[in-house]
Simulated assay, not measured.
Amino acid sequence: MDTLNSLALEVPIVSARYAYRFIRFMESRGVKRHTILEDTGVTEDMLESPEASLSMNQVLAVLGKADWLMTDERAAFEFGQQLDLPSHGLLGFAVLGQENPRRLISMIVQYLRVGLPLMDMELASTGSTFRIRLIDTWGLGSLRPCLTKIYMGSIHRVSSQVCSHFNFQFDFPSVIPEEDWKRLAPGCEFEFDANVSQVTMPLNGLPIRKVDASLEFLVARTRHDRNQQTLEADETVMQVRELIMSQPGRPCTTENIARRLDISPRTLRQHLASAGTSFRELRNDIRESFATLYLKDTNVPLESIAEKLGFSDQAGFTKAYRSWTGNTPGDVRRKARKKK
């Protein structure tokens, strides 16, 4: 492994609350805490601290210890199912504020990329059916099945309010019959030894419970009166927002989005204008929301946030963020840490 990757493995990136919940889960199955934590670099104080974060090396050490102690290969999926909305911190509030099921799914994927960056996710949709593909970007090796099942279980739990049927595919084998897996998720399908690890799910079309719309981290809210929008323009805005959310970095341009929607850039601008918005405004809204999530709920370095959001350098990101919010990224992060 090169020096850059070795350093990346030591950077704190995951809130210790996930480790705390995982240890509690293992304890409920009769595994002693000290057995899992020994030689992992994770301490009791870290588990109890709301500000603590774990590095990738520490996460892998804990999972490695626990993986061989699990007597049921479904355990990792079950733990994922226990990661409900409140377990993900800001995700719970942000998701509960989404009235549109399509935005809810996009929000889940984007937030998990930020708050639990152990695997990457590729989101695609056809009509009302969504597909989330899991991608191993760390070279997880033998621990990839364990983490994949944790992610799948959590996706199932937090998406179940808008999806009733899930088709889970795993690119590794299982010695347990499918019927046993279905007991964890009745009405769902499980396939092993597939080409990829992904979950496919059609939306129910049910409305999401409306909560306080003033939450500052609700993603992608329009700023204009939309009472006079045509249905066509409204649908275009929704599609554009989802495409921007799936890839808010440098490739996200008017031309690329128009090509993905199979319309001309001019037509795209017209639809957005009739909806009282613009590509630039939508993109900046989403960039601002994602940036605030990164700053308040993760320890991702500012230069990495800038790169993820499509800025050429940290200075450009800082200037843009200040123009959006009146605050610098550093100020927002410091204030968030003081509140914890």
Rank of each mutant, 00 (worst) to 15 (best):
198 Q>W: 06
147 L>P: 01
130 F>P: 01
185 A>M: 04
191 E>N: 13
134 L>P: 12
197 S>G: 14
123 L>I: 10
154 S>P: 01
186 P>F: 08
148 T>S: 14
114 V>S: 07
146 C>E: 13
144 R>C: 04
106 S>H: 15
190 F>V: 01
176 I>Y: 04
211 V>F: 13
188 C>F: 14
215 L>M: 12
119 M>T: 13
109 V>D: 10
143 L>F: 02
135 I>Y: 01
134 L>K: 01
119 M>L: 15
150 I>H: 05
129 T>M: 05
137 T>G: 02
181 W>H: 11
176 I>T: 07
177 P>D: 03
174 S>Y: 05
163 C>M: 11
141 G>C: 01
159 S>C: 10
122 E>R: 12
179 E>G: 04
126 T>H: 12
130 F>E: 14
199 V>Y: 10
156 H>N: 10
138 W>V: 05
172 F>M: 03
161 Q>I: 13
194 A>L: 00
173 P>E: 09
180 D>W: 12
160 S>E: 12
164 S>M: 06
152 M>F: 09
202 P>H: 08
135 I>W: 01
159 S>N: 08
149 K>T: 03
127 G>W: 05
151 Y>N: 09
213 A>C: 02
142 S>K: 06
190 F>D: 01
155 I>A: 14
201 M>K: 05
172 F>Q: 03
188 C>E: 06
112 L>M: 11
151 Y>F: 15
160 S>H: 12
146 C>Y: 14
121 M>T: 10
201 M>F: 15
159 S>P: 06
148 T>P: 06
204 N>Q: 08
113 R>Q: 13
113 R>F: 10
121 M>S: 11
151 Y>L: 09
110 Q>N: 12
118 L>H: 08
107 M>T: 06
181 W>R: 15
130 F>T: 04
187 G>F: 03
186 P>I: 04
179 E>A: 14
209 R>N: 07
182 K>A: 03
208 I>M: 02
121 M>I: 13
132 I>E: 02
194 A>H: 00
183 R>S: 09
153 G>L: 09
206 L>K: 00
110 Q>V: 15
197 S>D: 12
183 R>Y: 04
167 N>V: 08
165 H>C: 06
182 K>Y: 01
128 S>C: 03
153 G>I: 10
192 F>S: 02
126 T>M: 08
204 N>L: 10
136 D>T: 01
181 W>C: 05
130 F>S: 12
162 V>P: 00
193 D>M: 13
193 D>I: 05
144 R>N: 05
147 L>G: 02
172 F>V: 00
160 S>Y: 06
213 A>L: 07
138 W>M: 05
184 L>I: 04
171 D>A: 12
153 G>N: 12
212 D>T: 10
